[in-house]
Computed example of a mutant assay.
Amino acid sequence: MTGGLLWGFTLVAVIGVMTPGLDTMIVLRHSVSGARTGLAAVAGISVGCLVWGTASVVGLTGLLTASEVAFNVVRVLGAAYLLWLGSTMLWNSLRRKGSDVDDVEPEPRERTIWSALRAGFLTNLLNPKVGVFYMSLLPQFLPPGGSSFGWGALLVAIHVTAGAVWLSCVVWAAGRMRVVLARRRVRRWLDRVMATVLISLGVKLVAEAA
């Protein structure tokens, strides 16, 4: 019984993390600056998911789900961050000039890694739908009569691990294509596409909260 639940959740988690989305785009964008930067984004995303997963296990996200005001506050904060991130990225890409072959001068490594970590973490932490995802999914895979806390923690660990492994593969794949992705023209358009997606998601979140 429990084995079937475990494998069922693992399958759902793997399919979920492999579905292209905002996390994949964030990791791909930061991987252009190098594997360490890409892995920093993966770490930020993993920590953000871990925070939501832990909150779900102890029941804190139940309060968020029950309170429309609290849910909308988190949603608006997330929308504001996405709009800021997308607008900044779009502005930087529009003012970037120079050769289409040579890459731009990179930022200091410490700041780049920190920016990637922060982007991955805040994008997940300020997205209440991640908490709702855990709250709606975890109860379906909890065994009857078992330890809900221990089993829930195991399921969260499986999801976070699956996400970290898959996104690390994205970092590796981006590294293989770095010669192409690092070109100014490609990087500029990659930034613009991602900025458009971020701004669109931000506007969508604001509209949903209205």
Rank of each mutant, 00 (worst) to 15 (best):
G44S: 05
S46M: 03
V47Y: 03
V47R: 02
V47N: 03
V47G: 01
G48Y: 02
L50C: 05
W52D: 04
W52L: 08
G53H: 05
G53L: 04
T54P: 12
S56K: 13
V57T: 08
V58W: 09
G59M: 13
L60A: 12
L60W: 12
T61R: 09
G62H: 06
G62R: 09
G62C: 03
L63E: 05
L63W: 06
L64M: 04
T65P: 02
A66V: 08
S67M: 03
E68Y: 08
A70K: 01
N72V: 14
N72A: 13
V73Y: 12
V73Q: 04
V74R: 04
V74M: 15
V74P: 02
R75N: 14
A79H: 06
A79K: 05
A80E: 09
Y81S: 08
L82M: 13
L82Q: 08
W84K: 06
S87H: 13
S87C: 14
T88F: 05
M89G: 02
L90S: 14
W91C: 10
R95T: 15
R96A: 14
K97G: 14
G98D: 02
D102G: 03
E105L: 12
E107W: 11
E107D: 15
P108G: 07
E110W: 14
R111T: 08
T112G: 04
T112R: 06
I113V: 15
S115T: 09
L117G: 01
R118I: 09
G120M: 03
F121M: 01
F121V: 00
T123G: 03
L125C: 09
L125T: 09
L126R: 04
G131S: 01
F133E: 00
Y134P: 00
M135E: 14
S136N: 10
P139Q: 03
F141P: 12
F141H: 14
L142V: 09
L142N: 12
P144I: 05
G146P: 02
G146Q: 07
G146I: 03
S148Q: 13
F149S: 10
G150K: 07
G150F: 11
G152I: 08
A153N: 06
L154F: 13
L155N: 05
L155R: 05
V156A: 11
V156Y: 14
A157I: 03
I158P: 07
I158Q: 07
I158T: 11
I158A: 07
I158E: 06
V160M: 01
A162N: 05
A162I: 04
G163K: 01
G163R: 00
